[in-house]
Amino acid sequence: MQNVRCERSVEGVSRRRLLATVGGGGTVALGGCLSSESDGGSEGGDGLSGEVIVTGSSTVYPISKAMRDRFTAKHPNVTVRVKSTGSGGGFENHYCPGDADINAASRPIEAGERDHCTGNGVTPVEMQIASDALTMAVSTENNWVDCLSFDQLARIWKQGGAETWADIDPTWPDEPVELYGPDTTSGTYDWFTANVVGDAGHRSDYVGTEDDTTIVQGLEASPYAMGYFGYGYYAENADRVKALKIKADATDACAEPTLQAAKAGTYPMARPLFIYPSEEALQRDPVFEFVKFYIENSTADWIAEEVNYVPSSEEQASENMATLEEVAGA
């Protein structure tokens, strides 16, 4: 990765210092600041140039890609490369070694990953930018199950877990459960293992992939298949697979995976989504401006309407902007 500083100013004031002067004005005021800044008299930020590399979560990938498209429309001389590597794969292989500016994650960074980063002179900065409803899905031909509890899910997905559907309920088919899910490098895998499967650990005899298309195709191929992925990908393929309702406890009501339920906290597999720009990368203007743009737009309605995630709250966006200014503004 070419590490080029691209320092720019507005009448002698760096854009990071300019951000500090309007920090109390919220995201709307900050957005106006972004659109009015220029370099050498150019309009719409055309003077900004350089490269930003984003790796990480396949769940967050559609958001980052949409942000990239909108950002580069305003700043065509900035190249933003967005790669879907899995949360853990991004931390381990790209971000912590210093080869990416931002890592997206569908779960918080782990202590070992933070240590790996620190050892390489990379300082992660955590920002929650959206929420998701992790979705468990089956074939549209599956007519025997509509809802599963965490206990039933754990019995299916744990090491040495259920081999047939009848192992979960004797009235269900005595046929092998064919399992598809994210790879072990995925934050979705990590979140599901920690929050649903538990100490027994996630079984390894399943088809693991970072390509959600493979999971959908697996569910279409067999009435006995099951798989899980982020809600955004389910929403794109709702006519091809059947989403299951979920309940955390056997006595709870079954909750359907929807953005409304995730936002309200009534869907038990709702989870936060993050980006982790590095403190060092934020000193470069292209990275700083892209993260600033990301935060400003994280509350936008199009997050839900176009990429099917719960947008960040205004409070969360303000906290993220304060963090950005604290890290890169001085």
Rank of each mutant, 00 (worst) to 15 (best):
Arg5Tyr: 14
Glu163Asn: 11
Val54Phe: 06
Asp205Tyr: 04
Pro170Ser: 14
Gly23Thr: 04
Glu306Asp: 15
Gln128Ile: 04
Leu48Asn: 13
Tyr276His: 09
Ala133Gly: 02
Thr213Phe: 05
Pro272Asp: 15
Ile63Thr: 07
Val138Gly: 04
Ala104Gln: 07
Ser222Cys: 05
Thr171Glu: 14
Gly232Glu: 06
Glu325Asn: 14
Lys65Glu: 13
Ser298Val: 00
Ser139Ile: 00
Thr123Glu: 13
Thr213Asn: 09
Val216Arg: 00
Glu220Ala: 10
Thr135Met: 03
Ala194His: 11
Gly121Arg: 10
Asp99Ser: 13
Asp183Glu: 12
Gly31Leu: 05
Gly90Gln: 02
Val4His: 14
Glu315Asn: 07
Ser312Ile: 03
Asn103Val: 14
Ala194Val: 07
Ser204Gln: 13
Val22Asp: 05
Val327Lys: 05
Pro76Gln: 09
Val216Gly: 00
Arg203Gln: 09
Ala66Ile: 02
Leu153Asp: 05
Ala253Pro: 01
Ala238Asn: 11
Lys242Ile: 01
Asn143Glu: 12
Leu48Gln: 11
Thr185Phe: 09
Pro311His: 05
Ser58Thr: 15
Trp191Asn: 10
Thr59Gln: 06
Ile215Phe: 01
Met136Pro: 01
Arg203Ile: 04
Gly201Val: 07
Ala137Ile: 02
Ala133Ile: 01
His202Leu: 14
Ala225Ser: 12
Val54Ala: 03
Ala111Phe: 04
Ala29Asn: 05
Asn143Met: 08
Thr251Gln: 07
Gly208Glu: 01
Ser14Leu: 04
Phe288Val: 12
Thr251Leu: 05
Ala281Ser: 15
Tyr61Val: 02
Glu296Tyr: 04
Arg17Ala: 13
Ala248Asn: 09
Gly187Ser: 09
Asn308Ser: 15
Leu18Cys: 02
Gly41Gln: 13
Asn143Arg: 11
Ser312Thr: 09
Glu51Met: 12
Glu315Ile: 09
Thr185Lys: 05
Gln260Gly: 06
Thr214Pro: 00
Pro182Trp: 03
Leu259Pro: 05
Arg155Leu: 08
Glu11Gln: 14
Val196Glu: 10
Glu92Met: 08
Glu110Ser: 11
His202Pro: 02
Pro76Ser: 10
Phe293Arg: 03
Glu210Gly: 11
Phe91Ile: 00
Asp199Phe: 03
Pro277Gln: 07
Leu134Ala: 03
Thr59Val: 13
Asp39Phe: 13
Ser9Leu: 11
Gly329Ala: 04
Asp151Cys: 01
Trp191Glu: 07
Ser14Gln: 07
Asp249Lys: 15
Thr72Met: 12
Val327Met: 04
Met1Cys: 11
Tyr234Gln: 03
Met226His: 00
Gly121Thr: 10
Val145Phe: 03
Gln2Ser: 14
Gly41Ser: 15
Val216Leu: 00
Ser38Tyr: 06
Gly112Ile: 05
Pro76Asn: 10
Val291Thr: 12
Gly98Arg: 12
His202Asp: 08
Thr135Ile: 06
Leu148Gly: 06
Asn195Asp: 11
